[in-house]
Design a protein around this nucleic acid. Structure first.
Lengths: 173, 173
DNA sequence: ACCTGAACACCGTTCAAGT
DNA sequence: ACCTGAACACCGTTCAAGT
C-alpha cells in the first residue's frame, strides 16, 4: 500500500478513501484483469476447443499480475463480476460438451484451480528485481497446455475413471 | 516468527540461531510434513492406482498446514529431500504407467501443481479463528479426487489430445 | 469527496553482547 | 551453541482534522 501510495504521490492513508483494505484492492485488481480474458461467444464453436482457449487466455492474463495470484488462489478466486461472467461461460461450454448435473461444477472448479494454480506456480521468487525480460513462467505455458489437454480429455471421456482397487468408476449412477 | 518465538518462550531473534529466514523455515516445515506422505513401494502394484493414492495422500498431508501452502506453491514447491524422494517415486510410477521421455516431467509437474494448487485453494479465509472443527477443505476432497481421476485418465490415454482446431494431437511424434 | 500528519500495533531481521 | 536487549527499516490501518 505504501509503495502504491508513493507511486500515486499521495500519503499512504489516502488510499483508504478509495479502498477498504489491501485484500479488497487485490481482489478488485485481479477481477479487473480478468476482463481481458478472451471468451468465446455463447453457443458457437466446438465447446471443448472453447474451454481449451478460454483457460489458456485466463492463464496468460493472470500471468500479467502473477505476484498477486497466490493470494487470489488462497482467497478461492474471490468472485468479482468478471469471474462470475467467466464462470457462466464455462458452465455453458461444459454443458454443450456433455458435462452437466453434479459433474459440471466439479469440472469447473477443477479447471479453475488448475489454471490459477499453474499461474501461481509460475511466479518466480524475486531473484533479480531489476531485469524485466519476457513474462516469467512463459516457458511453463507449454506444460500448462499439456496438462489442460489431459484434463479436458479426462473430463470429456464418458467414465474412464482410474479407480484404485478395481470397481469401475460410477460417480453419479 | 514473533508468534512462534512466543510459543517457544524465547526472544524473537533467538530463532535466527536455528533458521536463516522465515522462508527457509516454511520450506523446511512443508518438506518435513511431506515425510508423512504414504508412498507405494517401488515396482509393485498398479502404477495408475499408485499415482492416484500417492497424490491423494500428498493432498491430505498438505492440508494439515494448509495456511503455509500458498507460499509453498509460489516458491515452486521448494525441493527438500522429501519432495525429491516423492518426485523419484512419481517418475517411477509414471514410467511403469507408460509415460516416459519428455512427457514424464511434464506429467509430474502437472500432477504436483494440481495437488498443491487444490490444497492452497482449500485454505479458507480466517472467518472464525476460534472454531477448530474438521480440517477445512475436507469437503473439497471429493472434488479433488474427481479432477485427479480426469487428469490420470488423460495422462494415461495414448494421445487423446483435445486440439482446438482439428489436427489430432501429436506432441512427441 | 479527497487528502494530510500523527500515531498504533505490528512485522522480519541484524548486531553486539552475554553465558 | 544458544540466548538476550536494543534497534532498524519496514508494514497495514485508524483517527481526527483539514479543504
Amino acid at each position: 500500500m505504501r509503495t502504491l501510495a508513493e507511486r500515486l504521490e499521495v500519503a499512504p492513508n489516502a488510499l483508504y478513501s478509495h479502498v477498504t483494505s489491501k485484500t479488497a484492492l487485490i481482489d478488485a485488481v485481479l477481477d479487473d484483469v480478468l476482463a481481458e480474458v478472451e471468451a468465446p461467444a455463447p453457443g458457437v464453436g466446438d465447446p471443448s476447443a472453447g474451454l481449451h482457449d478460454l483457460m489458456i487466455s485466463t492463464y496468460q492474463v493472470l500471468l500479467v499480475h502473477r505476484d498477486l495470484v497466490p493470494a487470489y488462489l488462497a482467497r478461492q478466486g474471490a468472485r468479482g463480476p468478471n469471474a462470475q461472467r467467466l464462470g457462466e461461460i464455462m458452465l455453458e461450454l461444459l454443458d454443450r460438451a456433455g458435462v452437466s448435473g453434479a459433474r459440471a461444477p466439479e469440472a469447473m472448479r477443477v479447471l479453475i484451480v488448475y489454471t490459477i494454480g499453474f499461474a501461481a506456480f509460475a511466479t518466480r521468487p524475486p531473484i533479480d528485481a531489476g531485469a524485466s525480460g519476457p513474462v516469467p513462467g512463459e516457458e511453463l505455458t507449454g506444460n500448462f497446455v499439456s496438462g489442460l489437454r489431459w484434463l479436458l480429455a479426462g473430463i470429456a471421456a464418458p467414465n474412464t475413471a482410474v479407480n484404485p482397487r478395481g470397481r469401475a468408476g460410477r460417480r453419479d449412477a
